[in-house]
């Protein structure tokens, strides 16, 4: 981004300023995830090793698996589809890496950094709130697993980062809906609720 004319403008996240009213409670926290670089990678599975070389980090080969580190993470979403994520500052390095293998290895790398918005869901009630609209068996989902799935009326990519810590990615124009949905489903988990009313805890 060139200096000068655009200075002072920030990229506009559609959930800018969104706060979960009940967020003070220990049962559930919702937060808007940080922006990052996202790239959609399509490549023949046979050439995955070359992609790993270009990416400079492990890329899992099984659908639903995720590799993650401080500077890179990779989600396997389909038989030949991966979502690569990294800090925004790493984006050019990654695209350059893939450009190098491009000549001999056909693949598709598409910038989708602005396509989705991330929402973090954590706390003991996180799985219950997600299960308000997501049909997956989250208890049996391994930590470090991911899935593209449904949350009520929205498609999301869900990652289980820790036992009670999930992140989801939803396309930009659905983000407001997804946030409202999670906030609404989460209302009953506010701090001072009578627990006997909240079954399943």
């Amino acid at each position: 981004m060139s200096e000068g004319f655009f200075a002072g403008d920030k990229p506009h996240n559609p959930l800018e300023g969104a706060v979960f009213a009940a967020g003070a409670g220990p049962e559930l926290q919702l937060a808007v995830g940080d922006d990052c670089a996202r790239l959609s990678l399509r490549i023949a599975p046979a050439h995955l090793d070359r992609a790993i070389g270009a990416f400079g980090f492990d890329i899992p080969s099984k659908i639903g698996e995720m590799s993650s580190g401080a500077q890179r993470s990779a989600l396997c979403l389909g038989p030949d589809e991966w979502l690569l994520m990294a800090p925004e500052s790493e984006r050019e390095k990654i695209t350059a890496g893939f450009a190098e293998i491009g000549a001999q290895t056909s693949h598709s790398l598409v910038d989708v950094g602005h396509r989705t918005v991330a929402i973090d869901i954590s706390g003991p009630a996180s799985a219950m709130v997600l299960n308000a609209g997501c049909p997956l068996d989250l208890e049996n989902m391994a930590v470090g697993a991911c899935a593209r799935t449904i949350l009520d009326k929205a498609e999301v990519v869900l990652m289980k980062l820790e036992g009670e810590y999930y992140r989801l990615e939803t396309v930009r124009s659905f983000a407001e809906f997804v946030w409202k949905f999670l906030s609404t489903a989460g209302r009953e988990f506010e701090q001072c609720r009578d627990k006997t009313r909240v079954t399943g805890l």
């Binding site: 659908i63 979403l77 389909g78 038989p79 589809e81 899935a147 593209r148 799935t149 449904i150 498609e155």
Partner: peptide, 10 residues
């Protein structure tokens, strides 16, 4: 035929 449209896309 089924399309795993909100899953692996196959």
């Amino acid at each position: 035929r089924w399309y795993h449209i909100h899953g692996c896309g196959r």
